[in-house]
Design a protein around this nucleic acid. Sequence first.
DNA 1: AGCAAGAAATTGTCAAACAATCTGACCGAG
DNA 2: CTCGGTCAGATTGTTTGACAATTTCTTGCT
Lengths: 232, 232
Amino acid sequence: MTEHLLNHRPESALGLDNVERSLREQAQSTIREAILSGRFTAGQKLTERQLTELTGSSRSILREALSHLEARGLLIRQTHRGFTVAKLNPRAIYEIFELREPVETLAAELFTERASDQEVAEIKAAFEALEHSFEAGDLRKMRTAKEWFFSVLFTGCRNTEIRKALENVIDRISYLRIQLLNDSERRKQALIEMGQLANALVARDRDAARNASIAHLVSARQALIKQLSKSN
Amino acid sequence: MTEHLLNHRPESALGLDNVERSLREQAQSTIREAILSGRFTAGQKLTERQLTELTGSSRSILREALSHLEARGLLIRQTHRGFTVAKLNPRAIYEIFELREPVETLAAELFTERASDQEVAEIKAAFEALEHSFEAGDLRKMRTAKEWFFSVLFTGCRNTEIRKALENVIDRISYLRIQLLNDSERRKQALIEMGQLANALVARDRDAARNASIAHLVSARQALIKQLSKSN
DNA sequence: AGCAAGAAATTGTCAAACAATCTGACCGAG
DNA sequence: CTCGGTCAGATTGTTTGACAATTTCTTGCT
């Protein structure tokens, strides 16, 4: 049972799906998806057996994939003790947002100046998708929509380095949301904030984008830390 | 011949040398060191045979290491065509500095507020080491001293995320310097700028640190791009 | 010189094996 | 009954050899 859940081909939202990928890449994104979707929880230990079964690949390939994911910060490796899903404490969350604030804000600012009209339209569409999945209460679709939104944002800012730096970092908190954000009040608030950002981006208003980005990140950080310190 | 050059154990400047490391880690840092030291040049193709000989490890281990380095952006992988050392064009340099500017500046600002007195002393020492190696004209030592300086900066700012994000990015331009920075005039200028940053950090003067950081990055970016467009 | 067919090299992947280390169960001493 | 200690089983680290898929080099033909 649940066979079909394990073999799906994810991350279409990231524009990375070359369809013909190596097994290693497939294994990588299968595991990544399992983490981001909450199937593997933060701190959980992952054994190689479990993962070879999940991905269907051999140990060699699996370990290449794990090595990659470790470098991206999604997994923690302890010699002779295997891999665990990276766990975030309040301190780490604080640090991540401290980094995100200037970078993501820069991305938003650059977007207003560099994005194509098509990208502007797409960011609007992505936000609307987010709204719809929110109304439908579909957590999985919310994550996909959010990934789409950020993907367009990072593409439109015309800076691959920013994209890479933030994708890693956002991945790591993305799956935390699944665990923590049952607070639908906060979700609603987040949606409003992202709406303001989306509006500013669509209007190509650099200052407004800057303000909206900062406001959103500050408030997201506070909410996350609050919930995390409660649950720990 | 040159056996001793191949088997060295690098990265002592990064505080990562646990002495007892897995072969995979050793292979990883041997390759990284080979790239950063300029032994492998940007764009160069690396075959697995060549690298197993260099690292002394088996293919499986080697490929884990390569997978890691690929994730860190130091290597580029093309399916069935192997790995090449990441190559930076002017556009990529521009993007990297666009990212570095807000992040590294933030790191400098945080350092002035969070670093311990010992770290302040160490950043002074690191800068002095940089000065000395500059006077001695020793490129390798200059790189080590610079790594030391940044390592202390990133530690003192008390934000692991910033450290990780910047280490990746700085690695990538670090070896470019070896190729391009034969311009000793520019090196002198860079030293002066870093001196100003060091002074501001030691004085724990946040605003001065901010200004010095920005000034340095802007000027470093311009110099790099200028040289790169000349040599291409 | 240009090009196509075949040979050689390289990468992608798997499987089997063994050493080193960790984990958990069992057992005896206090 | 709890606290160590020992030992077996499980897990990770690493190597080797094999083979298919693909790329790159060579060679010979026109």
